[in-house]
Structure formats: C-alpha cells, structure tokens
Write a protein that binds this DNA or RNA. Structure first.
Lengths: 244, 244
DNA sequence: GCTGAGATTGCAAAATACGCAACGCGCGTT
DNA sequence: AACGCGCGTTGCGTATTTTGCAATCTCAGC
C-alpha cells in the first residue's frame, strides 16, 4: 500500500540477516541507490538502522527498545519468565515459550541450554504447526473450524523422515494432544532433536501460550526426555496459576 | 527525508509505549486517519504491527525476530552473555551491558537482580553519559576530540543532587575513570542506587563495551558495592579475553 | 430496527519520492 | 605520485505515490 514504507521494511528484514552495503541493498530491492540511501537515512535518524565506520548498514538499537516493549505487552511472557528460568536451570535444556498470533505460533521467548547446542529457532519467528511441540499444542487449542481450515492450508514440509505429512495424520495427532494435555515432537522438525510441549491456560482454561523443552538426541533419548514431562507440566501449571 | 516512512517509524515508537487505536494514532501524529490506516496496513502485512480483535494496534512479532537478529549482530553481547549471567548469579545484583553507538551509550543487555527492584533502564535505550557508570566508561574511551564535542553538547540534566553538572567536573571525572580503569555512579542517576562499571576491550585494547553492576542503597551502601569491584573486573577481563 | 462511532474506499490534487547523471572522496594500482 | 575505480552523496525535473476529504460501510448498543 505504501511503497516507500514497504521497501523500508524490506530493508529491515534484509538487515536482519546480516549487515549490508548500500549497493547490496539496492540490488536486493531492485531500486536505485538513491532511494535506498534516503530510506536508510530516515531510519538512521530514528536509530532503527545504524552504520559502522566502513559504511555497512546494520539494525539499530531502537529495535531493541521496541522489542523489549513489545514483550512486556505480552502478559504471558512476563508471568512465565521466572518459571521458564527455573525450568531451564533445573533441566539444563533449551526452553521455548510460544503464543498464538494471527494464525501462527510465534516464539516469544527462548532460553538456551547450558550446552550451547544451536537450535534453529528464534524469538519472533513462527513455529511450524505440524511438527513442533508448541505448534501442535497451540493449534490443538484453536476453534475446530479454524483448525480444519489451517490443516487444509499447511504445506506439510517434510523436515525429517518423521515429519507428519498430511491433514489426516495431523488430525489424529491433535486428538492425542488434546487428550493427554501435552504434545511431543520426536525428531519431526530437526533430526536428532526431541521436544515436549504443554499449554499455559488462563483462569477460564483458555490456552494462552505453550512451553516446550528441546533436547538433542545425543544428550537424552526420547524416553529420557519424557522423564522431564513432570517438570514441564509443573511449570505450565505454575505459570497458569500466576496468570490469574 | 521520507515522510511516510518517518511517520511509520513514529507509529512504531508510539506503539512501543502501549497499544493504540487508529484514531489515537492519527491524533498523535496529527495526520488523517486514512493515512495512518494505510501505513498500518503495510506494516501489518509484514507482521511489524498486529491488531487484536477490538481493532487496537500493537507491535508485531516481526520486531522480536529483528531485535533478536540485531542482538546477535552485536558480537560483544554473544561473548559476554555467559559471563554476565555468572556475575548476576554470584552478586545477585542487576547487571548491564552497554556499547557505544553513534555518539550514545546504548544498553544492549540487562539481567535483573534477584530482588526484583525495578530500575529505570531498558535494553535499547541510551544511557546518560554524565551520570551512569557505563556512560562514563564508554565516553572516557572515545577519541578526545569527540569527548570534548560531546561534553559541550550534553544537557547535564540533574537527576539527583549528586549528578555531575558541567563539562569541567565531567572532564575531571573521566580522567579518574581512565586512570583507575573503572567508573562509579554514586546515586548520580537514580537516588539510592549506586553503580560501578568497567570496560570490555578487544585484542588491541580498544573499548568495545561496558559492564556495570547496580545496587539499591538499602541492600548495600557504596563501600559495600565497591567490594564487588573484583568480581566486576574479573568479569570484564574474562569477556575481553573471550573476545579474542 | 435505528443510531452512531469507528473503519474503510474512491477520487482528484499535489506533495513527495523517484531515478538520472554528475560530483566527491578515499583507496588500491600501476 | 598520478590515475582510476568503487562507492557514497547531491541537485533537479518528472510523475508516481501519497494524502486528505467526503461518502460509504460495518457493527454494536439501545
């Protein structure tokens, strides 16, 4: 709708992947250098973008401030924070918090494992609905009508050979999730990583978020991960209680 | 330079303070509703902004992702993270990490004290240069020419009755900071809060960041805070070593 | 079923952003 | 030391894009 703004957002997205030079950005957006320069200048003035000594552009510090503010607007995250920290300390594993936002499951918090095994996940990024623990938990909690719509639209990308590959299979899986009150991801999204996830609910029992624990296979096998389930459920229960 | 973009950024800044309705935003920016609507739509499409059921606008999840990426682009933060965590655990106090960015000292990481005493500081926000420990440390490390320029431009806002109030006083303070290798803030920014801060350096000895510990007066008096200095210096030394 | 507050759209005016081409500047090359 | 190249920057005329208005639509409360 607004061309210059759309381009500016594209620039920000691009800078999110790494620093860029003016020409690189111009080439990427396929617009004239001049245009990019002026957009960058505007954003620089408000600290959304900065540039280093060698004229390479990077994301600016204003984004920190905004993201920080955006988080505080997510009540769940505030409430969950200390509990997640405790779970992270106790289990030593990577812990995620995700919420439902506009048809997607979005990670809004992440605590790394003590062993710094890098995982492909990031705060602010959507989680796949058909093959992650939090995705399943959140999807299973949506109105049935919307679940069906979404299940029909998913791409069912096969990340590993365990990935659920179609609506029927997913529908069955969601039934299990609803019945048992938690979801598993047995190397469905990343090979050699198992996860378990459970919902956080408000006073009316509505699901307002999902917490998961992710463990690389080489640390714990799937059955051993299941032994962490009581800790996970205790955490989500505590968060839900604090949530009022 | 780019009007629509500038307005859009203004909208983001405003949403950073809380959720807004269309009319509220229009009034705040003093532009027509239509204009705001279209800007919001553009940002909504890229998940920079979202709106809830009742048509109130909030910051979107894309900002999380970007902020997360922006952090990872700050090498110092990555390297410092585990050390800060350790310092935070050992002392139990609020720990900050700040870097120099475009003439300002910006907080890029913060770990709260175990006693949740709220401090007025926020990741992404600039720290005052004349009355915070990190501000002094970072300012003292800049080229003298720039220091002078900046000292002439600062507003020397008197937050408390201990706040440094002019260039001469600040110049003397910075000499002390350089000489001793760390800086203090004796209730100069927030009454009843004392801080100590020290620089992180790269292999060439250039200052690339600053770490500080902040303690409310009711927990420890100034002399007691000074006893934490060895811990602080050990931390900055360790970070500097890891920095390569 | 009416009323009104707020969101949304079509349109025409013009302000604004755009691309071009020329300039400046620093760095590495010959 | 001079030259040339790469890259950022600027002035300017054009026309695309954005803007504000006014009319319309939608939904909630009465």
């Amino acid at each position: 709708m607004s061309q210059s703004l759309a381009r500016a957002l594209q620039i920000l997205a691009s800078l999110g992947e790494g620093d860029r030079s003016l020409d690189e950005l111009a080439a990427e957006l396929d617009v004239h250098k001049t245009t990019v320069l002026r957009l960058l200048r505007t954003m620089e003035a408000d600290r959304f973008v900065r540039r280093d000594e060698s004229y390479r552009y990077r994301l600016g510090s204003r984004l920190f401030a905004l993201a920080d503010a955006a988080r505080e607007q997510h009540v769940v995250r505030e409430v969950a924070s200390p509990h997640l920290r405790q779970l992270n300390l106790k289990t030593g594993q990577t812990v995620h918090l995700a919420v439902w936002e506009n048809g997607e499951a979005i990670y809004i918090d992440k605590l790394d494992s003590v062993q710094s095994v890098r995982m492909y996940s990031r705060v602010g990024v959507p989680a796949a609905l058909h093959c992650t623990a939090v995705g399943k938990v959140l999807l299973a909690a949506q109105p049935l009508r919307q679940q069906e719509t979404l299940m029909g639209m998913l791409d069912y990308h096969s990340y590993t050979r365990h990935t659920i590959s179609g609506p029927e299979e997913l529908r069955a899986e969601l039934d299990v999730v609803r019945a048992q009150g938690w979801a598993a991801d047995r190397a469905e999204h990343e090979a050699f990583i198992n996860c378990i996830g459970a919902p956080v609910t408000d006073h009316d029992g509505r699901v307002v978020g999902a917490v998961s624990i992710s463990v690389p296979d080489l640390l714990l096998n799937y059955d051993q991960v299941l032994e962490l389930l009581p800790d996970l459920l205790a955490t989500t229960k505590a968060i839900s209680a604090d949530y009022n």
